[in-house]
Design a protein around this nucleic acid. Structure first.
Lengths: 213, 213
DNA sequence: TCGTAACTACGTATAAAAACGTAGTCTGAT
DNA sequence: ATCAGACTACGTTTTTATACGTAGTTACGA
């Protein structure tokens, strides 16, 4: 097999640099490109098509889910391996939708990255043992028949303001809306994200990559 | 100068492995040890004293602030460089208290890590340019005269339950307390963390490393 | 053109959080 | 023996959030 080129998409330069060095030490790896976020990745991919992209989920500017979608539009052959900090059910669904063919946690070790790369090169998908365990242990937490929890633009906007500590009244003033409208957005947010209250909502925003902290 | 040994303390194996490889490529670096959290670090330090420790703030089991304190009790000569995901004022204060002599963000690049190591070897302290910028731009956000925001055990316990989406009533039942007592704990939490409401409180819990997500 | 989804808005009611204040008990340090 | 801090608890009031229902407008695609 020929050497393969790889794209690393993550907003932490140190992480990228370290991972790049680990990857370039592998015999079958050619060029390793870096991008700081989804946007940089997509524009870079036009000049440097790659076999495999290791894509962080939580990034500013454009998150990993959106980046994976666009990357596959641009280059349908690309294998996207999602990298994440946490094991979280919302990711599996969104990333599968976005066309990812593998899922790795950042607290896995490099050997696992190698395995994942080998798997996706052979047209297989890869899921880390930790995540598999998680799914087997807590199947109720992996409700694949769940209602589509994609938030609208407005809902996302409201959610981020909630996370910034604004009250519905303050959000209404900021967005020039009725307070009752914001009440409704908030109600829908709780429903869609299956959250119970503000605290759960903030956690959701972070885990889903909508909120950068 | 002799070669120096370095400890990397971070809960993400991939990050550790990459950073280790970057460091071992430097001519003046000897052994590089890894620890998954503060506890592992402290017990490992007894067998392998090092000149410099790169310590993540947010870790399970024992966070970076506590780890830095104990490391300096164990080996007062150690230079602790704090590594963090965000630029956050609470960190500066706590880490300075804990005896850190440098501060780096994970989205800085490796050249900066080299600079920081060089600085602390020469008995200087190091602060990354991003953080310095942050301080200069938003001095009001760096209130070094702020009240001590250390939370008590009970407060931390309550805070984590709040983050899990429990109401005061539910927390009271879980901890076998009066709801009014939990009300008071929550009130004190808002005061001590200078938060405005539940949302800000959750963000605080995450940024301060109390809540692992 | 018909239907759907998003966005907007209001009514009403209850639950919870936030903002004051006070105060007793216990433990550990000086 | 005294003091401070942690933990506990209560009272009151106001503000916010949560829950449930309805409904008009607009934009976009089938």
């Amino acid at each position: 097999m020929d050497k393969i080129d790889i794209y690393i998409v993550d907003d932490h330069a140190l992480f990228r640099q370290g991972l790049k060095l680990l990857l370039t030490n592998l015999s079958f790896v050619g060029d390793v490109f870096e991008a700081n976020n989804g946007e940089e990745f997509i524009s870079g991919l036009k000049n440097h098509p790659v076999e495999i992209a290791l894509v962080d989920i939580e990034m500013p500017v454009m998150n990993g889910i959106e980046a994976a979608k666009r990357a596959r539009e641009l280059q349908p052959s690309i294998k996207v391996l999602a990298l994440s900090m946490y094991s979280e059910k919302n990711y599996y669904l969104s990333m599968i939708d976005a066309g990812a063919c593998g899922f790795l946690l950042k607290n896995s070790n490099f050997e696992e990255v190698e395995k994942a790369i080998a798997a996706v090169r052979n047209e297989n998908s890869y899921i880390s043992i930790e995540i598999l365990n998680d799914i087997l242990k807590y199947p109720d937490k992996c409700d694949f028949n769940t209602i589509d929890s994609d938030l609208t633009e407005r809902e996302t906007e409201v959610l981020l303001l909630i996370c910034n500590g604004l009250t519905n009244q303050e959000i209404a003033e900021k967005l020039v809306l009725s307070k009752r409208t914001v009440d409704k957005h908030r109600e829908n947010l709780l429903l869609k994200t299956q959250s119970k209250n503000t605290a759960s909502l903030v956690i959701y925003a972070i885990k889903s990559g909508l909120l950068q902290i």
